[in-house]
């Protein structure tokens, strides 16, 4: 059920069980959204609306929470997630150059985060907290410190082959 083809009819059972899991609990909006994201790879608009309606909480409220935190994604994401840090230290160490190399390699336009074939998602974050090994790129949860364009592109090449 990951990726683009989300259908709320098909997901109703899963959503219902997530709803049951947190039912009656106060302050469970974030864990609930995390579970939804875990399940579908992102937060499908219809899934969020379904839960808001089920809980009789305004849809806008859920949307506000989902957009406030960087951890939530409202668009489908690629199979591989590349997180490039562009915090102060990484920026000084040339993160922008690395990001441009990755974009060119994946054929991403300026506003695009995910490749057409849903293979890769590239996202920028503002500091991952390991400035000592900047610039940092995280590929599928593996941290690559003192990253150089060539090294990162090699990793991407391996991932491309994999699928």
């Amino acid at each position: 059920m990951r990726g683009k083809d989300f259908s709320v009819e098909q997901a109703a059972g899963t959503l219902e069980s997530l709803y049951e899991k947190y039912r009656g609990e106060k302050g469970a909006v974030i864990p609930l959204l995390q579970d939804v994201q875990e399940e579908f790879g992102y937060l499908p608009e219809e899934a969020v609306n379904w839960i808001a309606d089920r809980l009789e909480v305004p849809r806008s409220f859920f949307f506000g929470v989902a957009t406030f935190y960087a951890q939530f994604h409202l668009a489908p994401r690629g199979k591989n997630i590349i997180t490039a840090c562009s915090g102060t230290a990484c920026h000084v160490k040339g993160s922008e150059r690395i990001i441009n190399f990755i974009k060119r390699d994946l054929g991403l336009t300026d506003k695009q985060e995910t490749t057409e074939d849903m293979g890769f998602t590239l996202e920028k974050v503002n500091c991952v907290g390991v400035c000592s090994i900047s610039p940092v790129v995280i590929i599928n949860k593996k941290v690559h410190g003192k990253a150089a364009p060539a090294k990162i592109l090699k990793e991407i090449k391996l991932l491309k082959k994999k699928k």
Binding site: P58, S60, F61, F63, G64, T67, F68
Partner: peptide
């Protein structure tokens, strides 16, 4: 929100 219409909200931060 206070009047219960609950349409507007903030996106992002």
């Amino acid at each position: 929100k206070e009047q219960g219409t609950n349409v507007l909200e903030f996106m992002g931060r």
